[in-house]
């Protein structure tokens, strides 16, 4: 392997790594993993949120993003207001029928892989607005990955949802999805 000819290999005093095979400098700089684990690790720790805040639940998102709860600890602090830049949509608030096409369109504009967190009673089920104007749950129009209960949920619940989403992303297989896409392209096109 080319990596074994790394200049660091020569500078290492011999004998120090007698318990392990190979030159020590290389060993400490190279680790092996699967591509899936690598990609999922990157994705789950750099979620860029798109805050789709329409009502009171969005106020809790502000608390979440500020220093006390600080989503930066989860790599998700880079709030983007363009769907092209973000991969985690946070739907926080009541979605009316007038808002529904807008929500759907913004979700369609987001790059894949995209994830949706549905925050609070309103976004999950319509909440107490059992009436002509409120969508009874955003999962009627877009797929949802994590639901958060509460009216409004506390910022800790948001953090729990982000951690659950991270766990879900770690479970995904980039390689399989890619193979599936290639497969579809060959058979359809």
């Amino acid at each position: 392997m080319a990596a074994l000819e790394h200049p660091a290999a020569e500078q290492t005093p011999s004998g120090a790594s007698s318990l392990r095979p190979g030159p020590e400098g290389v060993e400490q700089n190279i680790f092996t993993t699967s591509l899936d684990a690598m990609v999922s690790w990157g994705r789950s720790n750099s979620l860029w949120p798109f805050p789709f805040g329409t009502a009171c639940c969005a106020i809790e998102f502000m608390a979440l993003a500020a220093s006390r709860y600080d989503i930066a600890r989860f790599g998700a602090e880079f709030v983007r207001f363009s769907p092209r830049h973000s991969d985690m949509m946070i739907v926080a608030g009541t979605i009316t029928y007038k808002q529904a096409p807008i929500l759907r369109r913004i979700w369609e504009q987001m790059i894949e892989p995209r994830y949706v967190i549905s925050v609070g009673a309103c976004a999950c089920s319509g909440g107490f607005y059992d009436c002509y104007c409120t969508v009874p749950g955003i999962d009627e129009i877009i797929p949802v990955d994590v639901y958060i209960a509460g009216c409004p949920p506390r910022p800790e619940a948001y953090l729990e949802a982000i951690m659950q989403l991270q766990a879900k992303i770690m479970d995904e297989s980039y390689v399989k999805a890619r193979a599936q896409r290639a497969h579809e392209r060959i058979h359809i096109g």
């Binding site: 029928y97 007038k98 529904a100 096409p101 059992d130």
Partner: peptide, 24 residues
């Protein structure tokens, strides 16, 4: 307040309060 394609006037007492309309 309502969607441009909404049919009817929802605060009339004879509009069923839970009648929803999907508008695209």
């Amino acid at each position: 307040l309502n969607h441009a394609d909404f049919e009817g006037h929802p605060l009339r007492k004879d509009y069923p309060a839970q009648r929803r309309q999907w508008l695209l």
